[in-house]
Design a protein around this nucleic acid. Structure first.
Lengths: 138, 138
DNA sequence: GTAACTGCAAAATATTTGCATCCTT
DNA sequence: AAGGATGCAAATATTTTGCAGTTAC
């Protein structure tokens, strides 16, 4: 586990620090997307609020995690698949938000359907956010 | 124009006030989605910041406007189609966010494709957010 | 040793709440 | 007249910035 996390940091030319290891492990351990508040709450050692902001931003910039647009506009983060690289995200999977427990899932296996936009528009990326009830809450 | 706006308010048992008329007209006039900041900036009479918050919330509750989940997690609002009613939104259209000018469009004519989720999940609503470049910016 | 990272303080920004006043019906 | 809507002040919450001290390499 820790090795994987260290590898990720090395691959992205980031120095190995407690903070980054801890936060990245949280993502590894979690099958769900995490908010800034989740991270503050879940991490055993207390990480400074500001450092968490900066770490998350760094990870997003490096393509290690991605943000998820949610219906209630809270910011959620989740690990990217390998295809992501700096400045270029390819998270073309479906996100599912459970209205009961508030959990956000990345449904990695389900690919995004083609969406037809007007001819004059250029599509870079498509996000699909499904709201409903997850398997644990029904 | 004003008549339409007044009708909308009446249909929703909301009293007719300058504030609501003004904000609702902004949405009518705009082909794009608006943020709280947009509304503060665009409205001719200065509306109190707090009142705008409350008005937007009221409109969302009543199903007059809906929020749009954006990739950068700013909150955008746009008029709902008639099918929306209190507590129940049916905005199953595609939202398009232009990375150049930052404009959010509701592509009303383009319906949401079916998304297959795991059998254990119940789908209530699907949002599709397309990022790219709009016709004006290419 | 040096550059990058962190934590604290504080600034800037965004959102919510309470309450007295005003406006719509 | 009565209830809802507004605006102001202020409380909270969220995010950003500056900087000095610490850590990774």
């Amino acid at each position: 586990m820790k090795d994987v996390v260290i590898d990720i940091l090395k691959h992205n030319q980031l120095s190995i620090t407690d903070n980054r290891l801890g936060i990245l492990e949280l993502f590894q351990k979690s099958s769900k997307a995490l908010s800034h508040a989740d991270i503050e709450r879940l991490s055993e050692k207390h990480f400074d609020r500001v450092t968490i902001y900066r770490t998350l931003q760094t990870f997003v910039d490096k393509g290690i995690i991605h943000t998820i647009p949610t219906a209630d506009n809270s910011i959620m983060y989740a690990l990217c698949k390998e295809a992501c690289s700096e400045g270029h995200h390819h998270d073309d999977h479906v996100h599912f938000l459970c209205g009961q427990c508030g959990t956000t899932y990345c449904l990695d296996n389900i690919s995004i359907p083609e969406v037809n936009v007007p001819k004059d528009f250029i599509v870079h990326q498509t996000n699909v956010l499904v709201n409903g009830v997850c398997k644990n809450c029904r």
